Deep mutational scan, measured.
Amino acid sequence: RKWEEIAERLREEFNINPEEAREAVEKAGGNEEEARRIVKKRL
Rank of each mutant, 00 (worst) to 15 (best):
K41W: 06
F14T: 02
R37D: 09
R36M: 06
R1S: 13
W3E: 05
L10Q: 00
P18H: 13
V25S: 02
E26F: 13
N15S: 12
K2R: 14
A21T: 02
K27M: 15
I38K: 03
E23A: 11
A24Q: 02
F14Y: 09
R22I: 12
G30E: 02
V25H: 00
A24W: 03
E26M: 13
G30R: 02
A28E: 01
G29M: 13
E20H: 07
E32H: 11
R11E: 07
N15E: 07
R42E: 09
K41Q: 13
N17C: 09
E33S: 09
G29I: 08
P18G: 11
E26Y: 14
G30L: 03
N15P: 07
E26N: 11
K40W: 14
R42I: 15
E19K: 09
K27Q: 15
N17P: 13
K2N: 13
V39T: 06
R22W: 15
K41E: 15
I38V: 07
L10V: 05
E34T: 08
A35C: 03
E5K: 08
E20N: 05
G30N: 03
W3R: 07
E8I: 13
R37K: 11
A7S: 06
A24Y: 04
R37N: 09
I16V: 08
F14P: 00
E8C: 13
N31T: 03
E19H: 09
A35R: 00
P18K: 12
A28F: 02
E34L: 12
E8Q: 15
E5L: 09
E33D: 12
E19I: 10
E19Q: 13
R36E: 03
E13M: 08
E5F: 05
R37L: 10
K27F: 12
E4W: 13
I6R: 02
A35I: 02
K2F: 12
N31K: 06
K41F: 06
E13K: 04
P18S: 12
I38M: 09
R1Q: 13
E20P: 03
V39S: 02
A21V: 03
L10G: 00
N17V: 07
W3K: 06
E33R: 09
L43M: 09
E32P: 07
N31A: 05
I16Q: 02
E19V: 09
P18Q: 13
L43W: 08
R42K: 14
G30A: 03
E20F: 14
E13W: 06
E20Y: 08
E8Y: 09
E23T: 10
V39H: 02
E12H: 14
A7W: 08
I38H: 06
A24F: 05
E34N: 07
E26A: 13
R37E: 13
E5P: 04
I38A: 08
E19D: 14
P18E: 13
I16D: 00
E20K: 04
F14R: 01
V39M: 06
K41Y: 06
A21N: 00
R9S: 08
A21Y: 02
W3L: 07
E4H: 10
E34D: 08
N17T: 15
R11D: 02
L43E: 05
R1I: 11
I6Y: 03
F14G: 01
N17D: 12
A35M: 01
I6L: 11
K41D: 14
K41L: 14
R22Y: 14
K41T: 10
E5Y: 07
E34C: 04
E26V: 13
L43D: 04
E33I: 09
E12W: 15
N31I: 09
E12T: 15
V25D: 00
E34W: 07
I38D: 04
E4F: 10
V25A: 04
A28M: 03
K41G: 08
I16P: 01
E23K: 10
A35E: 00
E20L: 14
E26T: 11
V39L: 15
A28S: 09
E19C: 07
E34R: 10
E19S: 10
E5D: 10
A28I: 00
N15G: 12
R36T: 04
E34S: 06
N31E: 07
R36Y: 04
N15K: 12
G29D: 13
E19F: 12
A21G: 03
I16T: 03
R37A: 12
I6W: 02
P18I: 14
I38T: 06
E34F: 07
A7G: 03
A24I: 14
E26K: 11
R36C: 04
K40Y: 12
V39P: 00
N31Y: 06
G30Y: 05
E5G: 05
